[in-house]
Amino acid sequence: MKKAIIQVENLVTRFGDNVIHDGINIKVNEGEIYGILGKSGSGKTTLLREMIMLQEPAEGKIEIFGHNLHTLNPENLQALRRQWGILFQFGALFTSLTVAENIAVKLKEYTHISDSLIKDIIAIKLKMVGLELKTAAMYPSELSGGMVKRAAIARALAMDPKLLFLDEPTSGLDPISAEKFDDLIIQLKNLLGLTIVMVTHDIDTIFTIVDRIAVLGDKKVLAEGPIDDVAKSDHPFIREFFGGNRGSMRRRYGK
């Protein structure tokens, strides 16, 4: 039995009268890549935001690294926040800082390492995500959408987090970069023992790198488990998602 990094129990989310989640239970194990899947509006991003404490659920419990987010004191919450990296859907880079400063911001605030080391870390992270070094001095407004995403990934990886949250990581990347990004994620996961939670629609990503997925729908978790098991489910949405042209190709020809 693997150690659970994230445990969500009986989670209920409401916006006014609108119920988004009605009793969500999921479990993310250490060292796995966990995908959250679902139709638009099924509350995937909301679930992610609740895990990273940007939103408070109406009911239920979220435990990360064994700590209940609801009862943790502010000091420990702060310590917890340093241990994860987050890639927002649209990057959310600080527009008044250069790319290099964006990547360095947590390093400078939270560690006391030397400038030369920070510089090398920035260079390596930029190359990891496939950005040219000249982008280091550029401002986010000077970057294309795909480059913003990569810079944001570099920033999320800056502190070598143990837990990485990705909100639609490969959307907006060209297929080649998306594939490279998938490779990178696997490599980092293996090397650093990363646990990764991602919201994604990318069927290639789901089949290539995701270990287990949860499918959200009808305010509940429709299915949770390894990808092959979930794909066999006969819920209409899951059938539709994996039975579509792109999905069935993948299933026929395997990974």
Binding site: A123, I124, K127, L133, Q187, N190, L191
Partner: peptide, 22 residues
Amino acid sequence: DEFLRMFNLIEGFKKGETLPAW
């Protein structure tokens, strides 16, 4: 092994240009 793999990963990215000094 872990050390070697990490070494190869970083060395792989180390090649080529370096960030110019500020």
